[in-house]
Simulated assay, not measured.
Amino acid sequence: MIRAAIRPPAPRSPRTPLPSIIRAASAAWLAAAFLVGAAGVSFIVSAHTQHRDTAALTGLGCVVLAVALLIVFTVLRLRTGKRSARETLTTVGLIVGVPLLFRGPALIALAALLLLCVLILWLPQSSRFFQERDPKARRRFFGRR
């Protein structure tokens, strides 16, 4: 009987722990996702209790819940160091956060949280983390190498 040599698995390269700035950004984004999700649930509940604009409020609530789920999914990608996750969260934060600044005092806190989350993602410590984990390809001229 011929025995095949059993090789031990190749050692994994140890992943460096997440920098504190990325952990803080992840926690802040998850808190923002929770608040956005709570707003979505609030729209749906008020649609069914007030019996006014039921379809519109339910639709808006579903869209807001979808945005909250997008934030949670993207935060998971952010923790792996994907540059596209930072760009997606920045886009969501700006598109949702800036208009909320002008919607009254109740929503200013959520807007400030979203814009603070965007700011954290673009601090120099965060940029270093993304440069190490997901470096940009250098392109010379119109995308050609």
Rank of each mutant, 00 (worst) to 15 (best):
I2L: 03
I2Y: 07
I2E: 09
A4L: 06
A4V: 02
A4H: 13
A5E: 06
A5W: 12
R7Y: 08
P8G: 12
P8N: 11
P9W: 06
A10E: 07
P11S: 15
P17E: 02
L18Y: 03
P19Q: 11
P19G: 14
P19E: 09
S20L: 03
R23C: 12
A24C: 07
A24V: 00
A33E: 05
V36H: 07
A38H: 03
A38D: 07
A38N: 13
A39M: 09
A39W: 02
V41F: 08
V41T: 14
V41C: 13
S42N: 11
S42T: 01
I44W: 15
S46H: 11
H48C: 06
T49F: 15
T49V: 10
T49Q: 01
H51F: 05
A55W: 01
A56F: 11
T58F: 06
G61H: 04
C62T: 08
V64A: 15
L70N: 08
I71F: 08
I71W: 07
V72Q: 13
L78T: 01
R79G: 00
T80I: 04
T80V: 03
G81Y: 00
K82N: 08
K82L: 13
K82W: 03
R83E: 02
R83T: 14
R86M: 03
E87G: 06
E87P: 05
T88N: 03
T90P: 11
T91F: 11
G93C: 10
G93W: 02
G93R: 10
L94R: 14
L94Y: 05
L94D: 09
V96F: 06
G97C: 13
V98P: 14
V98W: 01
V98Q: 04
L100S: 15
L101Y: 13
G104Q: 05
A106Q: 06
A106P: 02
L107I: 01
I108G: 09
A109C: 04
L110V: 06
A111K: 07
L113M: 14
L113P: 08
L116Q: 13
L116T: 01
V118T: 14
L121K: 02
W122F: 01
S126E: 04
S126W: 01
R128Y: 02
R128M: 02
F129G: 13
F129T: 02
Q131Y: 11
Q131H: 12
E132W: 04
R133G: 07
R133M: 07
K136I: 08
K136T: 15
R138Q: 10
R139E: 13
R140C: 05
F142P: 03
R145L: 11
